[in-house]
């Protein structure tokens, strides 16, 4: 079958504004969008810039706006997309070229919430493993699935207009540690997320939950963090 594509191109060296360019590619219905983009890049227009690494929805490199909604190009099939398929870079981050965006503001938000295990400094290093029951683990199971693809953060209307907002992905990763029974940095993180650029900037538009390629209930996690910050309990 012939697949029609409308790709939003931007070359900082020659363009002042982004513009759509159209391509037609021969593809199978069961091909992924990523395969189709490869065909454009490899056989039609080598200047097309995009990121992809594993191509199997694990590395999170190829998040794009596909037909108006965030998704991973390696996780959507051509047969499920209305034609012409429009592809744009994820929004709210500076575009470097075509679908390659500067992820630094995204990772700055991620780093801000201290996404690592914080142990109690008053406690000695444990001589044994840190025991956790299946029930304790289940509390934050959903948020361990994040692959940092930025599909949620760049689908958020608040993030588009305010790069300072830490964004859904950062809050999801904070949730992963705040509700971990082995971690003792909850108070620290909740303090960070209670600030102006933190969790309370979320206005529950739910775009993030729909955009997450791992099916994380992002808004629910953010609400749990807000509630924990509000009542000071985890």
């Amino acid at each position: 079958m012939d697949v029609k594509l409308k790709l939003l191109r931007f070359n900082p060296e020659t363009d002042t504004e982004a513009h759509f360019e159209e391509y037609t590619v021969e593809a199978e219905p069961m091909d992924r969008l990523l395969d189709v983009l490869h065909k454009v890049k490899w056989y039609q227009d080598g200047t097309l810039a995009m990121r992809r690494s594993c191509a199997h929805a694990i590395c999170g490199s190829d998040a794009m706006v596909i037909n108006g909604e965030n998704a991973l190009a390696c996780k959507v099939l051509v047969k499920d997309l209305a034609q012409p398929i429009t592809v744009e870079p994820i929004r709210g981050l500076p575009v470097i070229k075509d679908f390659v965006v500067d992820m630094e503001p995204f990772f700055a938000g991620y780093k801000a919430v201290k996404p690592w295990l914080i142990t109690d400094p008053h406690e000695h290093e444990p001589a044994r493993e840190r025991i956790q029951s299946p029930e304790e683990r289940a509390v934050f199971d959903d948020t361990t699935k994040c692959i940092l693809c930025a599909a949620c953060t760049t689908s958020c209307p608040i993030f588009w207009s305010d790069e300072g907002y830490v964004g859904p992905a950062a809050i999801v990763n904070a949730h992963r540690f705040i509700f971990d029974s082995r971690d003792s940095g909850a108070r620290e993180r909740l303090e960070i997320l209670s600030q102006a650029d933190g969790a309370f900037k979320c206005r529950t538009a739910f775009n993030c939950t729909a955009a997450c390629p791992r099916g994380i209930k992002v808004t629910k996690a953010i609400q749990e963090v807000k509630r924990a910050a509000l009542f000071g309990t985890v």
């Binding site: 982004a18 706006v65 744009e88 709210g92 575009v95 209307p157 207009s161 206005r203």
Partner: peptide, 27 residues
Amino acid sequence: GLFRLRKDQKGPIYKGGVGQWTWAAHR
């Protein structure tokens, strides 16, 4: 203003779901 994008990005309004539109109407 709600759906204004960066200069280097241009495109139709993000599709979004009922959540996005109730949020926009709320504002």
